[in-house]
């Protein structure tokens, strides 16, 4: 049997809200070490990679590896039936064709249970190599969300340039052009408010804003986001999930014809 109880159930709610517009169906890979998911959007330009380690659940039981194919739109609707402070348990019987979701109120006086039919998903998996990135930018996730939204006024692409001075986002379209430049923070009250650039070499890449906008829906998961860049390599956008894992998005850069 597979059973994973998540005391902070709202983490799962935020996760599914963050990916449901990008990915329709996904295979949750359940292993003794934890739960993971890898899925591409329908145009195969971006990829979602989720990891939730077993030790982030209480308790976590997985006797054998299981793949749970789930329609994320359905899962999102079911999760809307839970309260933000509910404890959420995901369960799958060994011979079952469904995943069971249990929502438990903090005082345990309300218990709801939903049985979700599993779906067969044939999804192509990609091997993501370990990469030494040219530049790693860390910033508040709300700032990332705001910049992506602002740049969308101008066009459908954004060029992101990292240098020792900071990071510059620029876009241009029919109505005009604009940019936002963030300097590395010198002194901040909280580390979560800082902008840092860890630079091996200056790099500039162009990306479709539509996908960055979808990635930025994960902002409620974490106060900070890291963006990792290398020349001619997909962008990595990472949100940490408390102390238990991460939600990563990869996006292929646009390249000159």
């Amino acid at each position: 049997m597979f059973e994973a109880r998540l005391p902070q159930g709202q983490i799962l709610k935020k996760l599914i809200e963050a990916v449901r517009e990008l990915v329709t169906d996904a295979n949750f890979e359940c292993k003794p070490s934890g739960l993971s998911l890898q899925a591409m959007d329908s145009s195969h330009v971006s990829l979602v990679s989720l990891l939730m380690r077993a030790d982030g659940f209480d308790p976590y039981q997985c006797d054998r590896n299981r793949t749970l194919g789930i329609n994320l739109r359905t899962l999102a609707s079911v999760l809307k039936c839970s309260s933000n402070d509910d404890i959420i348990t995901i369960r799958a019987e060994d011979d079952g064709d469904s995943a069971i979701l249990i929502f438990e109120s903090p005082s345990s006086d309300r218990l709801s249970e939903f049985d979700l039919k599993l779906v067969d998903i044939d999804n192509e998996q990609l091997v993501i190599p370990d990469t030494q990135y040219d530049a790693v930018v860390r910033m508040p996730s709300a700032e990332f969300q705001r910049i992506v939204r602002d740049m969308q006024i101008l066009g459908d692409s954004v060029t992101i340039a990292c240098s020792k001075d900071g990071v510059k986002f620029s876009a241009n379209g029919e109505i005009g052009s604009g940019s936002v430049r963030l300097k590395q923070s010198s002194a901040v009250d909280s580390e979560d408010d800082a902008v840092t650039v860890d630079l091996q070499q200056a790099v500039s890449l162009t990306f479709a804003l539509r996908y960055l906008s979808l990635f930025s829906k994960a902002a409620p998961l974490s106060p900070t986001v890291t963006l990792s860049f290398s020349k001619d390599v997909p962008l990595l956008v990472e949100f940490r999930i408390a102390d238990m894992g991460h939600l990563r998005f990869y996006l292929a850069p646009k390249i000159d014809e």
Binding site: H44, Q125, L126, V127, T206, Y250, A252, I255
Partner: peptide, 14 residues
């Protein structure tokens, strides 16, 4: 102009 390659242009299938 610029074109949008798919991810498999960069990452190989497993």
């Amino acid at each position: 102009g610029m074109k949008q390659p798919v991810l498999s242009h960069f990452f190989r299938p497993s």
